[in-house]
Each structure stands twice: as structure tokens, then as C-alpha cells.
Design a protein around this nucleic acid. Structure first.
Lengths: 169, 169
DNA sequence: CCGGATCCGTTTCGATACTG
DNA sequence: CAGTATCGAAACGGATCCGG
């Protein structure tokens, strides 16, 4: 099993830098594209259930999705519980540890905005990212905690940003 | 209706995965762990050559490394050229497009600092990340452009941060 | 229906040996 | 040093089936 250690601080001897090394770690979780996709779906699109994740256009298959969901739960990025609204549904949400990945997602999105092909950038997003990066992280975390998402649902991040801008002008 | 989809990973074969998605993209490049690893090696450890990438502890194999290097060059994240110092060596460096991924790496590192196992965080790094996130991005980009890296080489980012702190106190 | 589990052909990976 | 070539092992994609 591969692991990805993002940063190894020089104070650690080379021989000690391995999987459980006392250094700063990152990507063993997020380096997997499918895992990141699930997290994106939660944060940006407000998806929560197995079925919703399946509908994403990247067409993750059931077997892979099952695998990634259990892994993410094991790693304490997600928690699993029954939906309070509909008892038939399983519901996945981000833990605080998972939410802490929001800055990573935001920076990926910003990179995509700059270098993606034929980009349609969202002006309020871009403005906010330029003028108040940390505020953007914070706003997203708050929104997701409250059950919302960046693009989806009542009181989405984009809506909040728009009303914020119109108030200012 | 405008939307920003962070990760674009159509269910086409890996070899055919590219950005034909009519949306804003990010991770088709970076979602691959090995690619990110190469970029990490350049930014954090100042590695530049095939042989140097091979020595990383994640033990990428020659076949995969070859594949990822050519892909990254194709995607204009890296450029390939002969070393001016040693004509026998091939040398890979980041383009501006590649350098623009520095914020992503930094956020991954910060996440690692918070949630990695038994972390030994580097104080100057953490301090700078907390007080001047954008300055940190910028410092790293400047250093890498000048041929340096975060942890390696003359005038590394960590050294600069240390001297900056000692000047202030 | 929803949330998976199982099976199977194909693709990719990992390890190692080899070459210009 | 910078890659190819090869081959078995693992992961993935697609489809179908199952239990509540």
C-alpha cells in the first residue's frame, strides 16, 4: 500500500521517515482521486447519501464507492448515520477533521479557475478568494456545518456571497 | 447557470481521461498521487532529475515515474531540459502553471500538521502559515523560481523564515 | 427503491531485469 | 543516468443480484 508523505521536516532522520513517522503527513487519504471526489460532493454539492454520490458525472461505481466510504469513515473524515428525515437512508457527513480539508479544496478550485480549459469562473467566488481567502474557508466550513454546501441547497455559499456583495454596493 | 465543479474525473479509461468535461477542472492532474508526489519533491525537496525522484521513500517505480513525468510535461506543469551544470542530466522544473499549485501543497501540509500522527511541526512554518498564509505561498514560489526549495538547498524557505523570525525578535 | 455485495474482464501498478 | 520491457498482482469498470 502506497503512502504519500507530503512534508518531511528535516529534523527527522531519514530512517525514521516512514508510514507512521512522526512527521507531518497528508495525502495517504486525499491522494486518492475517488476519495477527494466524495469530499467535493459533500462540500460543493451538498450530497450526503450513497445514491447521490453515484449520480455524479464521474460515474463512480458502487464497489469503489463502498470501499472509499468505509475507508473515509475509518479515517474519521466522514461519519455515517441514519438520516433523521428519511429513516431508510444512510447519511454521510464530514467530521471536523474532514472539514479541515476545505482549504485544500478551495485552493484546488482556485487553480482550476485559473488554469482549467474554457473556464466559467464565478465572479463572487473569485472576488472573495482574492480579497479574503481565510474568510472564504471559514464561510464554507460554517455553511457545511449547518447542512448547506457551496452550490446547492438553501443558503448556499454562493448565495451568501452574492447577498454580501449586493449589501456592500 | 454558472457552476464550478472541482474535480473532473469521467469514467473513461485512465489513458483517455482528459478535460473534455464542459466544466471547470482541477484534479485530473493532481488527483493522481504519484503526480502530486513529484510536484512535492520539486517544491519541498528541490529534486529535479529522474534519479532524484526515484530516491524518495515512497519508492515510485521507473515505469510509473516515466509515465507521470511525460504526462506532467504534456500538461505544462513541468518542463524538461538538459541541466546547464551537468550536460548528462535531464532536468525537470515547474512552469508557472505548476507553481500555481503551491497553495494546494501548503494547505495539504497544514492539514498534515494538524491531523498527522504524532506530528512534529516546524514552528516557523506553522507560525507563518497562521499569520501570513499568502506571504507563505509567495515566499515558496519565489524560492522555487530561484532554484531553491522548502527544505533543501541554499537559502531554503525554512532558513529564510528562521532568519526572518530572528530579525524580528 | 436504497444501500450495498459479488463476480469477471480489462486496465493499471509494482518489481525487477535490461539497454543506450 | 534515464529510461524500456516484461510479467504477475492488484485495482477498476460494468453488470447483475440481494436484503431491508
Amino acid at each position: 500500500m502506497m503512502q504519500v508523505i507530503l512534508v518531511c521536516f528535516p529534523s527527522v532522520k531519514r530512517s525514521e521517515r516512514n508510514s507512521h513517522c512522526p512527521v507531518n503527513v497528508a495525502l495517504e487519504t486525499v491522494g486518492d482521486p475517488w476519495s477527494l471526489l466524495v469530499i467535493r460532493d459533500v462540500v460543493f454539492h451538498g450530497k450526503r447519501t450513497f445514491g447521490e454520490f453515484l449520480t455524479s458525472e464521474e460515474r463512480i461505481t458502487t464497489s469503489v464507492l463502498t470501499d472509499r466510504l468505509t475507508t473515509l469513515v475509518q479515517k474519521a473524515i466522514l461519519t455515517k448515520h441514519r438520516s433523521s428525515a428519511d429513516r431508510r437512508r444512510e447519511c454521510y457527513s464530514l467530521t471536523e477533521k474532514g472539514l479541515a480539508l476545505v482549504p485544500v479544496l478551495v485552493e484546488l478550485a482556485n487553480w482550476g479557475v485559473s488554469y482549467g480549459p474554457k473556464v466559467i469562473a464565478n465572479p463572487v467566488w473569485v472576488r472573495k478568494a482574492e480579497t479574503d481567502r481565510l474568510g472564504l474557508y471559514h464561510l464554507i466550513c460554517e455553511t457545511v456545518r449547518a447542512g448547506g454546501a457551496v452550490f446547492h441547497g438553501q443558503n448556499s455559499v454562493i448565495e451568501k456571497l452574492q447577498s454580501e456583495t449586493s449589501r456592500l454596493s
